[in-house]
């Protein structure tokens, strides 16, 4: 596909998912940005298996990415969609792509903070319409006024990164020593510990810690499927609730 066109599509998707998409879809498309981004980019680049592997690997770093009070530890749309697209266009291994995406995700917080700050302007405009009792214009402000700043903040950097970055990364990869690429891959294997660690500290509850240990060793020893673990967990949860009910 044409490089410019490809960069435009990736940048548009990144902006749309980050701020414009209806909220009930954003739970999956945004919080699962890398995973879904893997599918979207896989279709875009014509290699779904590769896309899914890159996306799923990047997603592991963000298992613990929880949005609380409007703040996020990283920009998931940029890490997920732009990150996966860049990784795929440079032909990197999934683990090496993870480190690229994590760096992008941190930089992406600049885009997010910029629009989260500047969108106050739109709110003040909406205040004036509200004070005039004009409900229609209040809606227009939320629908369309809200998208001016985010579009600039997400589309432009993503387009430039995609257009210039894919060639730059390819050139860079050609001159970088193999040892560094291995080290990037190794680090990519370590980063999921951060995502999982953040999640564990968020739901931390000493009396439930044994369940995490059960889950860990079920996979470590028996290498079972996560679906099996979830079903087992659901059964234990029901038993727990029944026992609690008996206690009164």
């Amino acid at each position: 596909m044409n490089q410019v066109l490809l960069a435009v599509i990736v940048a548009l998707i990144t902006w749309y998912v980050a701020t414009a998409m209806p909220m009930f879809l954003r739970w999956s498309f945004y919080l699962g940005g890398p995973l879904v981004g893997g599918l979207v980019c896989g279709i875009l680049f014509g290699d779904i298996t590769y896309g899914l592997q890159v996306g799923a690997t990047i997603q592991l770093a963000y298992l613990g990415a929880i949005a609380v009070g409007g703040t996020l530890p990283s920009e998931l749309a940029i890490a997920g969609y732009l990150g996966t697209a860049l990784t795929m266009s440079a032909g990197l291994a999934a683990e090496a792509g993870l480190t690229v995406a994590v760096a992008l995700g941190s930089l992406g917080l600049l885009c997010r903070n910029a629009y989260m700050t500047l969108n106050s302007i739109v709110v003040h405009k909406a205040d004036q319409y509200a004070a005039a009792g004009n409900a229609k214009m209040v809606r227009m402000m939320n629908q369309y006024g809200s998208q001016v700043v985010p579009f600039l903040c997400y589309f432009i950097p993503s387009f430039l990164a995609m257009y210039l970055g894919s060639q730059a990364i390819e050139k860079l990869m050609a001159v970088i020593p193999a040892k560094i690429i291995t080290a990037l891959g190794v680090t990519g294997g370590l980063i999921p510990a951060l995502g999982i660690g953040l999640l564990l500290t968020y739901v931390w509850d000493k009396k439930f810690l044994p369940y995490a240990v059960i889950g860990f060793f079920l996979v470590a020893y028996l290498n079972v499927n996560i679906m099996f673990v979830a079903i087992l967990g659901a059964c234990i949860a029901v038993l727990y609730m029944l026992a609690r009910k008996k206690e009164g």
């Binding site: 369940y211 889950g215 996560i226 673990v229």
Partner: peptide, 10 residues
């Protein structure tokens, strides 16, 4: 959630 997190870690 806890049991799944443990499994994901391993």
């Amino acid at each position: 959630s806890m049991i799944v997190i443990g499994a994901l870690a391993a």
